[in-house]
């Protein structure tokens, strides 16, 4: 039996909203030691989502037997919208489940809502992702990155990112003209989360599809900062750290034909 209780429904609500436009059907893998993990690839095979929710992400977590919960994220989103952000959220499944039970309790315990969601058999590709060495790593406020990705998409369907020792330059060039945004490394002593950190082994010049970057920045509601790891000509890693877990996106680059 699986019983995972979140202190508040808002984490799961934000997670599903962040990924449901990229992937529709997902297998949630549940185990006592690893908690809940998920790997899903978008239909175009360009963007991969990797989620880890350690047992420590939960107020209570129990999973007697490893389980795979095949879920339609559109349906899960509909059910999660029925709960309030500050409700407790508990996910419950039997050992060979046909359904996932989703329970919301308001903190005053005078209202309990229960939903049963049908599970699906989902046959999906799983890719093995080894730890990669990257040419550079950038950590910046997730809202800053979201603004650049959204703004620059209005100019071009591609976003070029150039990283040097102390700055990151985002460039877009399209039918109406060109634009660039330069972000410089700095340390904010008052609020560390506002700092911009660049670790560089080698300068990087990579280009990504703006549409995918706009999907990725939907996760900026989950973490105040995002870490972007880039290497020339290989997929980039975008990581949003969660309390006791992470949401990672791997994005394949664009290149000159």
């Amino acid at each position: 039996m699986l019983e995972g209780k979140f202190e508040s429904a808002s984490l799961m609500k934000r997670l599903v909203e962040a990924i449901k436009d990229s992937v529709k059907l997902c297998n949630f893998n549940c185990s006592q030691t690893k908690g809940i993990t998920l790997q899903a690839i978008d239909d175009s095979r360009v963007l991969l989502i990797s989620l880890k929710l350690d047992p420590g992400c939960f107020e209570g977590f129990r999973c007697d037997k490893n389980l795979v919960l095949g879920l339609d994220l559109e349906s899960l989103s509909k059910v999660l919208k029925q709960g309030n952000n500050e409700d407790y959220l508990t996910l419950i499944a039997e050992d060979a489940p046909d359904n996932l039970l989703v329970v919301f309790e308001d903190p005053k315990k005078d209202r309990i809502s229960e939903f049963s969601l049908k599970l699906m058999d989902i046959d999906s590709d799983v890719l093995s992702i080894e730890d990669m060495d990257h040419d550079c790593s950038i950590t910046l406020p997730s809202s800053d990155f979201a603004k650049v990705a959204r703004d620059m998409r209005t100019l071009s369907e591609s976003l070029q990112i150039l990283v040097t020792k102390d700055s990151v330059k985002f460039m877009a060039s399209g039918p109406i003209g060109t634009g660039s945004v330069i972000i410089k490394a700095h340390t904010d002593l008052k609020d560390g989360k506002e700092s911009i950190k660049i670790d560089l082994n080698k300068s990087v010049n990579v280009t990504f599809g703006a549409k995918y970057l706009n999907d990725i920045v939907k996760a900026s509601t989950l973490a105040e900062t995002v870490t972007i790891k880039l290497t020339n000509k290989i997929p980039a890693l975008f990581e949003f750290k969660l309390q006791g877990g992470y949401l990672r996106y791997y994005l394949a680059p664009k290149f000159d034909e």
């Binding site: 690839i41 890719l127 591609s158 290989i234 997929p235 394949a252 664009k254």
Partner: peptide, 14 residues
């Protein structure tokens, strides 16, 4: 014109 790569060129199916 730029071409979009897929992840399948970089990662193997497990």
């Amino acid at each position: 014109k730029m071409k979009q790569a897929t992840l399948l060129s970089f990662f193997t199916r497990s």
